[in-house]
Amino acid sequence: MKDAFGAPQSLLVLGGTSEIALATARRLIALRTRTVRLAGRPSPALESAAAELHALGADVRTVDFDALDSASHETTLGKVFAEGDIDTVLFAFGIAGDQGRDEEEPLAAVRVAQTNYTGAVSAGLVCAGALQAQGHGSLVVLSSVAGERVRRADFIYGSSKAGLDAFTQGLGDALHGTGVHVMVVRPGVVRPEPAAETVWAAETVRAAGTVRAAGAVRAAAGFASAPLEASPLTTTPDAVAEAIVTGLRRRSETVWVPGSLRAVMSALRHVPRPLFRRLPI
């Protein structure tokens, strides 16, 4: 069961090797999480992710899951729920694709759409049903800022995330009042943490403030050194993880990481298309 602060005791991750998901799992294990199920395609990376979380003190097992095999979702995920309550499900699977190639090879583009959208639809409905039956739980879905206003540069990925985002919002409304909480997370560009900067300040009182400030400083520094590379829209897996934990505590429905994206995107959403096309983003 979740405690008063939304910290789950059991966690199911779909996309068990995702960096964001692992950063989130680490934080949750430091709180209340004791049971972790990492679902994904079998690989050494998945096993080593499980071993790492196990070393932190959780009971971890891996589950075979392929987003592209929608027909199997009911059985594979059903089995996980049958073993015991899952307090939080984190959807972290997804592929970015390669826009250039995907435009040439329609089947490659379809793969992006099927992984990010269709796969999430079937897995999402299965999990939603199971959570509803147990009467509680959170479904956290990693969408992307790329789906909010789709750009020329990555519209195949962007459109799959737009579909995922809309589906998740609808599911959240459908489950409103059932005790099940659905949360959409929209990160900007996520870059791995520079090794020295793993921020565990979250433990301290002013955590939220510190991290946000640190994020801003980092973004500003990045901006100065590599103006085309980084921008205030960049974030790290750890920052996304922290935002997810905070979102669980507040039972938020939508989370932007960094938070400033909310304002940026609400402006960008209304930029007329002729102008939008010419923006260097």
Partner: peptide, 13 residues
């Protein structure tokens, strides 16, 4: 959907 007096962690029954 029920909670205790503190209104945290609602669940449905």
């Amino acid at each position: 959907s029920l909670t205790g007096w503190g209104r945290t962690a609602p669940t449905t029954a």
